[in-house]
Amino acid sequence: MGKQMNVKKTVFTAVMWILALMMLYPFIMMIAISFRPSGQAYQPLFSPGIIHTLRNYNQVLGHPNFLDWYRNTVVTVVVTIMIRLVITLLAAYAFSRLRFKGKGVILAFLVATMMVPGETTMVPRYLYFREIGILNTLWSIVLPEASEVFYLILLIEFFRSIPGDFTEAATIDGAGHPTILLRIFIPLSGPAIATTVLFSFINIWNNYLDPYLFINNIETQLITPALQFFQEQGGANMPVQMAGSSLALIPVIILFVFTQKYFVQGVASSGIKG
């Protein structure tokens, strides 16, 4: 009986590890092929006679705009996160702790707009951003990204979970709302803020449609849509495309592996409370 259980357990563990490798297989291939000469792109993973080369990475890094794309992406991510955090923390505090007329209606309306995908509003967004003159600048990404309802809900839910005793004690001591927010809520919200920063980083880094629509000059582009330049320029040169993709993915994957805890917390809390 015990032995049979053990065999079962070993088989299960093995199957799970095989499934895990299958999930990673595309990325393993991506990295493996990024080091090959283009002539060997379609040879199997462990075939004999494979030559390894850094030529593809040299070609990607040697693109006159590659560093621009990286810098643009980092700037966009950092500036968006800063504006997003400030305005969302303020609003989340008001929505979770203060009583004012129309609170419920405003919040319900904001949540309802979440079901409208950016896909169906791409044309008016393009025309409008053109009219107000932010097309082809990083502002066309930063400004619309600043107010995301998802993060508002995330922070509201977190603030609601902070026990009332904390604020009551502070109110008796005569502390106003700015003090309560700055001295009590923000220091207690480390995990929620970490989740916001992490999610924002990943989403903005991977954003394709908006920069693809709103940025048309090559030196202002962000890294994800810029990958298409290797597809056009490289033609069928698979390894160069793979090298570009690897360089676009690696920062996000590394960040994720080290901060997984906050990521899982974020998904679980945003999910369960709907």
Binding site: M23, P26, I33, N206, S245, L249, F263, V264
Partner: peptide
């Protein structure tokens, strides 16, 4: 099971990658 945390990480990684890079790999 043994190594559950690592296996979970493997299942989560595709979520943080961008669809353009994923598209390049899958077309291959």
């Amino acid at each position: 099971f043994t190594g559950r945390t690592a296996v979970r990480t493997c299942f989560y990684i595709p979520y943080v990658t961008n669809m353009i890079a994923v598209g390049i790999v899958f077309k291959y």
